[in-house]
């Protein structure tokens, strides 16, 4: 019995596991065991029974082809992690939580300042308002920074997703679907976040232009509204980018080596562009504008530089082909 189990383990080594292939393995093992027991009951010896079962197993590659997966070669299997459905779901979930916590962290820091401003606004009525305000601000900031640190530490667990990993075609498709389904919520959240940020000017204007509330109170409310807006951005943005990261870095086992090498080359081009190209453009813009006093139109250089950047990128892509 153990021999059969080991045989199946051996056969399925390197097969990317998802719900389908996992079930397949369980089903096949159950069949083989049934067959083995029946043969034993029919009077076959242990060795005979195992021999027949293995002979009647067939060719695993025939089956995998039908499933649209191929056994990874050993190199791929050891070099790259395989992310299964549950891993992917967990990643999206942790990214979402991370976005939420960072958003709340920002809100906490901003509300700290808001508390201080509110108390300062009513300094005349509340004795020791300054100290109470400072205390509240420090507390909120500590909470906010605490949230950042916690999320920063948790980010380590997600690191495997930031380099190429093996993904099953069926899982990639369902992530794509999930992203498509999330699109509307994402757009809604961005609109909500932007609206909150724009609306945040209202209390400030009310404070500055009308006698309804003191300016400081207006500013305090602005900060809180911005903080809430930021939560919309960070939460939905993190979920959206989680899907994007999976779709970019999740590769199929048969092409992962090629694609990872290509990404590596693109990384170099991106590095050159970001670290060398753009700084030069910025320096050039500043120097030129100062010397010529051409601030009115010199910004055009950024548009030209942007166009040139896409040219460089597509050229470097073409060279590879």
């Amino acid at each position: 019995m153990n021999t059969i189990r080991e045989y199946i383990e051996q056969m399925f080594k390197g097969v990317p596991m998802n719900d389908e292939t996992k079930q397949l393995k369980v089903d096949i093992l159950a069949n083989l065991e049934d067959k083995y027991l029946a043969l034993k009951e029919g009077g076959a010896s242990e060795n005979e029974a195992i021999g027949v079962v293995i002979a009647e197993f067939g060719d695993i590659d025939e089956l995998l082809e039908e499933f649209g997966v191929s056994r990874m070669n050993k190199k791929v299997a050891t070099q790259y992690t395989t992310m299964r459905e549950a891993d992917l779901a967990r990643f999206v979930e942790s990214k979402a939580r991370m976005g939420l916590n960072i958003g709340f962290g920002v809100l906490a820091c901003l509300s700290g300042i808001a508390f201080l401003l509110l108390l300062l606004a009513f300094q005349a009525m509340i004795p020791g308002a300054l100290y109470l305000g400072l205390l509240l601000m420090v507390t909120s900031t500590v909470i906010g920074i605490g949230l950042f640190i916690i999320e920063g530490m948790k980010a380590k667990e997600m690191r495997p997703f930031y380099s190429p990993f093996v993904i099953m075609p069926i899982d990639k498709e369902s992530i794509q679907d999930e992203q498509d389904n999330y699109k509307q919520s994402f757009i809604f959240s961005i609109v909500a976040g932007v609206s909150l940020c724009i609306m945040s000017l209202t209390p400030v204007l009310m404070g500055a232009l009308t006698p309804m509330i003191p300016v400081l109170v207006g500013v305090a409310f602005m900060l809180i509204l911005i903080g809430v807006g930021v939560i919309f951005f960070t939460y939905s943005g993190n979920i959206w980018s989680a899907y994007g990261i999976i779709l970019t870095n999740g590769k199929y086992s048969d092409t992962i080596e090629e694609e990872a090498a290509k990404d590596e080359r693109n990384k170099k081009v991106n590095y050159i562009l970001e670290e060398i190209y753009w700084p030069i453009i910025v320096v050039f813009y500043l120097v030129f504008s100062f010397l010529q006093g051409a601030w009115a139109w010199s910004w055009i250089i950024f548009i030209l530089a942007g166009a040139l950047e896409s040219t460089i990128k597509s050229l470097s892509g073409n060279w590879e082909n």
Binding site: L24, D27, L32, E56, F57, G58, D59, E62, L63, E66
Partner: peptide, 14 residues
């Protein structure tokens, strides 16, 4: 005729 395990599951999948 004995159907091979992998043949049978390929057929199920198809």
């Amino acid at each position: 005729y004995i159907i091979k395990e992998t043949t049978m599951y390929s057929a199920f999948t198809r």
